[in-house]
Design a binder for these strands. Structure first.
Lengths: 353, 353
DNA sequence: CTGTTAGCGCTTTCAT
DNA sequence: ATGAAAGCGCTAACAG
């Protein structure tokens, strides 16, 4: 009969006394509580939970029963502290209200939860430096981290690297990753959209949108390609974040005063693009005959919106899934051969409904 | 000179030796490391971080310098374990790809992060019982929890209650909350939409949508009100989740065979509603003259979509913000007078663009 | 204001 | 296969 363990020390006794008086729930049920009920040591309970094979079936059964009886819920703070593995993955995104991120995060979370991991969310906003957020996330000792973009301060890189955990940078492939990356090239998007529009004979290229880090990459590549193709420099209109349909209307309204023909508008979001189209139609322009509009982000409805809306489509779920798998591979000690995955993008052209 | 502390025990020495050899980063920098550098005890460092006022300015400065020098990042696992406060709030939602949830969660997170809390996300999916998810979340010892809906198993209620932490149930006010709740009445939505449509003289009421827990509440109230008003029982069409525009088209296509006039369609999502409208128009119906369509969820674009789309608007951010404030109030030990907050909803009617 | 002591609940390591 | 001891890094509680 396996008696004492270091269970019944002074501290615990108070809990036990109270427990005996009434029900068995005074404070949290601990491993030792389960152990006592099962008549084994707490180590056996721990093993029964984490590696059931390493425990005699008989003991296992006793433990299972004791867990059910006590309603034991493991304390992963203690477990994480002791084992240095938390089964927690940090993820930092600028916002959740953008399908590009919420869609990826959902896929990311879904894959990770299959393997018993949980996602600790950090929402950075577009402007804010994420130094603090990274620190906050790291203070939870995650087993891995997903970041947005590949542009991070040296301080962030250093802190991240110091943890010796898998680090995935998502959604953007502009710079070499700290560790691993999955996403697409925003510069390629800008360039390809420019070519797409030029090929169709539009002039007067215009970029509209909130200029966050990645939007700037798209814009600059767009502008550069315009020049490279021998056209006049494009106009660029900055808007506030988050982008709304209203802002698209307003932006285009202001532009319309200048008298445009064969204009080609590249919007940083499908909301803006939709607004531009509505305003353009309201002002008697024909879309896409007089004005071409290209959105970004695959808001899905774009495919069916009745003013035609051509948009850059991203496979959001693929980004999340790849990111999760990269993390998991590293966590399982597998060699990761593809440290950078480009999920690409499509320019999806739609006709009026 | 405050010498030893229990810093330099056997374990730590290996780290120190290695640290002396090279840089000062072998494994994680701990409080004691900072303490040593600052020439104070680790408790002083702890205090300097958590209650700077309770430390002499001089010591504070030394600690700040030492933290900067060492690049110390607190270990909140250890902190949480010791103090029984984790500054972690669990949040369970069915999905992030629905603006109703992602919008609320973003507001929830934003408010909480102002107060130094982090959100631990759980995505349950619509079908899955959330018992396991709740256990998983609770294993991280959150200081509070946000759940979706007010319908939970007794097991869940018990486990939650056993933690003695603030519990907020969001988005749905159907049943009395475990602790606190913020949301709106889905039954009221169904009822009001039915009245709205009846008042405008439509017949042939139809409900289309994926029938998750809350959608069923809306549907049943809708159907009940139809009957109560003396109309023929409404048709109900189940679709898969997640709802898409395509599914709206298909559903309506099937219904259209049956020859409808003055039909009134209540869709469980704006995607579906949009699809129904497109299909209806394609089949030569006039909207809203021949067919009325009401969506749900305020996808924002609804307000501008060029086929007119009337929709039930919810203040997503308000739900998140209230939920956060309720949690915070309780955590600060304040009495929460309004334990149930109804943010209501609007039926927003739109004309063709 | 600051230091000491004694754990938080778990897992590691080493015995057996 | 199982148990005992020894912490993980931090903070509560008390002493000074």
């Amino acid at each position: 009969m396996p008696a004492s363990d270091n269970n019944g020390k002074k501290k615990t006794s108070r809990k036990r006394d109270a427990a005996r008086a009434g029900r068995l729930s005074t404070g949290r049920v601990t491993l030792s509580d389960v152990a006592k009920v099962a008549g084994v040591s707490s180590m056996t309970v721990s093993r029964a939970i984490n590696r059931p094979d390493s425990v005699k079936p008989q003991a296992l059964e006793a433990v299972r029963a004791a867990i059910a009886e006590t309603g034991y819920v493991p304390n992963m703070l203690a477990g994480g502290l002791a084992s240095n593995r938390t089964k927690l993955i940090g993820a930092i995104v600028p916002t959740l209200t953008h399908m590009l991120f919420s869609g990826s995060i959902e896929a990311f979370n879904s894959r990770l939860s299959e393997e018993g991991y949980q996602v600790l969310l950090g929402v950075s906003g577009y402007k804010q430096a994420d130094d603090n957020l990274v620190r906050t996330i790291l203070s939870r000792c995650p087993d891995g981290v997903l970041l947005t973009g590949t542009c991070h301060s040296d301080e962030v890189r250093r802190q991240l690297l110091a943890q010796d955990i898998p680090i995935v940078e998502g959604w953007d492939l502009s710079r070499p990753p700290i560790d691993m990356a999955v996403g697409f090239s925003h510069a390629a998007v800008g360039r390809d959209v420019a070519r797409f529009l030029i090929r169709r004979g539009y002039e007067n290229p215009i970029v509209i949108g909130a200029q966050d880090e990645r939007a700037i990459l798209r814009r600059d590549a767009f502008l550069a390609e315009i020049i490279a193709c021998g056209l006049d420099a494009a106009l660029s209109v900055d808007t506030q974040s988050p982008s709304t349909l209203e802002m698209g209307r307003e932006s285009f309204a202001r532009l319309a005063e200048q008298g445009l023909s064969r204009a080609a508008v590249f919007c940083n979001s499908d909301w803006l693009a939709h607004g531009v189209i509505i305003e353009a139609l309201a002002r008697g322009f024909r879309v896409p005959e007089d004005i071409a509009v290209v959105g970004f982000g695959n808001l899905d409805f774009a495919a069916y919106s009745s003013p035609s809306l051509t948009s850059v489509r991203i496979d959001r779920a693929a980004i999340g899934l790849h990111a999760a798998n990269m993390c998991l591979a590293r966590l399982k000690g597998e060699e990761v051969r593809e440290k950078v995955i480009d999920v690409g993008f499509d320019i999806v052209e739609r006709q009026s409904a």
